[in-house]
């Protein structure tokens, strides 16, 4: 597309300066119009984000049954967290889940990246395959797993039996450990594609000349990995680490669908505990206090991320 220079020249003679001094342009000279364009955004952010955030902080200091009014409770809801068995269990379990998920996804993603970063024919197909589960909804993925591991006719039990590993259904969801294991397989399958794609993009951003120069200097594969690849990928790895941790801390769908937090409340995550406290026990104040704690943890992690990614610009 081309511009119409004649009209422009007729309108404002000093046009050539515009590229350097955008503030002088005819558009930006009208601040009221700018406000009009961002008004819908401002309204939604104010009503559905800032107001609820304020309500959340207020709510966490109140005794607030779902059906009924609030009465002040000071910091009582926070003080009760350490003695609330459901919350303590949920915090412990969520931390264990987060650590395991992050280790598994990081370890396995390196293998998948090695496979899909190959220049061989077919590498692109493999890359697409690894990523497909990422667009499948977590609830749908959990339902596929639920059908596959059911005791009545689940295909996972069938295969284990046929291969001679078990005698009868293995009981994928029978104990806390088994339920966690089953959920971890689901989570790795569902989310790892994202990590693979982001790592691939990070790898492609490394200038090829560096590798060639290193090779001429006689650097080994390990040395190239150690001194070129890893330093360049550091910001990407830091980002993925934070995303994996924050994502795991907020896990809900997979547990709600697959384990229902069971057996015996052994797989209740923080969000599941918040959800149950608010909408099954109708105790909004306690649920809000736990939400604020989770929120602070997330803000802290994001602060760490900003700190880690600072180097990106320094380089």
């Amino acid at each position: 597309m081309t511009t119409t220079p004649t009209v422009r020249d007729a309108g404002t003679p000093a046009r050539t300066l515009d590229r350097r001094t955008p503030r002088r342009s005819s558009l930006t000279a009208r601040p009221a119009v700018g406000l009009l364009f961002v008004a819908p955004l401002a309204i939604i952010v104010a009503i559905l984000f800032l107001v609820p955030l304020g309500v959340l902080l207020f709510m966490s200091t109140q005794n607030w049954p779902l059906l009924g009014g609030p009465t002040p409770n000071g910091l009582g809801n926070y003080a009760e967290i350490p003695s609330n068995a459901l919350f303590v269990g949920a915090i412990t379990f969520t931390l264990i889940y987060t650590i395991l998920t992050t280790i598994l996804i990081f370890g396995i993603s390196f293998v998948l990246v090695a496979v899909s970063n190959s220049s061989r024919r077919g590498a692109k197909f493999y890359r697409t395959t690894f990523f497909l589960p990422y667009v499948v909804g977590t609830a749908s993925a959990a339902l596929i797993w639920l059908a596959a591991v059911n005791d009545r006719n689940g295909v996972a039990n069938f295969l284990l039996e046929r291969l001679g590993f078990t005698d009868g259904p293995w009981g994928f969801l029978n104990t806390g450990g088994q339920a966690l294991f089953t959920t971890l397989t689901l989570v790795v399958w569902k989310f790892i594609g994202f990590q693979v794609i982001v790592l691939l993009v990070g790898l492609q951003a490394i200038p090829n000349e560096l590798y060639e120069a290193a090779r001429m200097d006689g650097a080994t594969t390990m040395q190239r990995l150690r001194y070129i690849t890893l330093p360049y990928l550091r910001p990407t790895l830091a980002l993925l680490l934070i995303l994996s941790i924050t994502g795991s801390l907020l896990a809900f769908d997979q547990f709600q669908v697959l384990t229902h937090g069971g057996p015996d409340n052994s797989t209740i995550t923080l969000v599941l505990a918040i959800y149950n406290t608010a909408f099954a026990q109708f105790d909004l104040g306690k649920a809000a206090a736990l939400s604020v704690v989770l929120l602070l943890a997330l803000v802290l992690l994001n602060g760490v991320q900003l700190f880690l990614l600072r180097d990106k610009d320094d380089r």
Binding site: T28, G34, I274, A278, S291, V299
Partner: peptide
Amino acid sequence: RFQFRGKSLLFGTTLLILMVPYATILIP
């Protein structure tokens, strides 16, 4: 395209939503 008061404040607040997943503010 425009300059107006509170521009960076609104932009920053919008990005802040990323830090506050709605699982944590779903009750309010």
